[in-house]
């Protein structure tokens, strides 16, 4: 019923909205701080955690990846951007295409997960956002803070959404705020996804994906695979996030 309420609202107000700020492409930089992630592993002793912090902590500038989000009022496509290989090595791009359709309330995500390609196909399940009274600037836009919790990976999620881009799209599997999400912070800075460029333009074929084969599963099945793997890895003294997107 909640979704329907939102939809109704969108329909009733779409006529008044600023047409120019509803369609375009966002470039994000996704930075992974492995030191933070490793020191959260419950099976490490205090001494081992200190050793990780001491050795890697002060020079951890994060592992950087470019991501792009094509958006308009009704849909979005989030995927890996073009990295350049000046460091002497180019890694393989994994299958990672997240598509959301806000008009039909449907989500289809193509994800390489633990050696298999899946098509996570389900209706949209917006996270339970809490809106906080904080504002800051991201990529030139004034954003407001919202938080939620990833109950599967047990992570706190902080999103900063633009007050004046009336689109409910966002990076990773997050969406459903009154404005476009320009910054996402996973678990107190373990991973940050920060927009560095927002470009408004009429999109033509940007939402088109070439056909990807993948086993069709639901959100619940996807979450179960992740939850089981994390549980098993921690029990086996392995870092689950070497094989899993954080």
């Amino acid at each position: 019923m909640k979704q329907i309420g939102i939809l109704l609202f969108l329909i009733s107000f779409s006529a008044f909205s600023q047409e120019g700020k509803k369609e375009g492409i966002v470039q994000y930089e996704r930075t992974t701080f492995w030191t933070n992630i490793v020191t959260r592993l419950t099976y490490l002793s205090a001494e081992e955690k200190d050793r990780v912090k001491l050795t890697w902590g002060s020079s951890d500038e994060g592992w950087k990846q470019k991501m792009t989000l094509a958006f308009n009022e009704n849909q979005s496509l989030y995927m890996q951007g073009e990295d350049n290989a000046e460091q002497g090595w180019a890694g393989r791009k994994e299958t990672f295409f997240l598509t959301k359709n806000f008009a039909t309330e449907h989500s289809t995500d193509y994800i390489d997960l633990l050696g298999k390609t899946y098509m996570v196909d389900d209706s949209l399940h917006a996270p339970n956002w809490k809106i906080l009274n904080q504002i800051k600037e991201v990529a030139g836009y004034i954003c407001m803070k919202a938080v939620t919790v990833d109950t599967v990976k047990k992570q706190t999620i902080t999103a900063w959404f633009a007050q004046d881009i009336p689109v409910q799209a966002g990076p990773e599997r997050y969406f459903g705020l009154p404005g476009l999400i320009l910054e996402l912070d996973i678990n107190d800075g373990d991973v940050t996804i920060i927009a560095n460029k927002v470009e408004f333009k009429k999109l033509t074929n940007e939402f088109n994906l070439k056909k990807i084969k993948g086993k069709k599963i639901s959100d619940a099945e996807y979450n179960k695979i992740i939850a089981d793997f994390i549980k098993e890895s921690i029990k086996g003294f392995r870092n689950p996030y070497w094989g899993l997107r954080y």
């Binding site: 909640k2 309420g5 939102i6 609202f9 969108l10 009733s12 107000f13 008044f16 909205s17 339970n128 956002w129 809490k130 809106i131 906080l132 919202a146 009336p166 459903g176 705020l177 009154p178």
Partner: peptide
């Protein structure tokens, strides 16, 4: 209770 978002929208012109 917890500032959970249930509905949102925009004001008109």
């Amino acid at each position: 209770k917890d500032s959970s978002l249930v509905n949102f929208g925009r004001a008109n012109d």
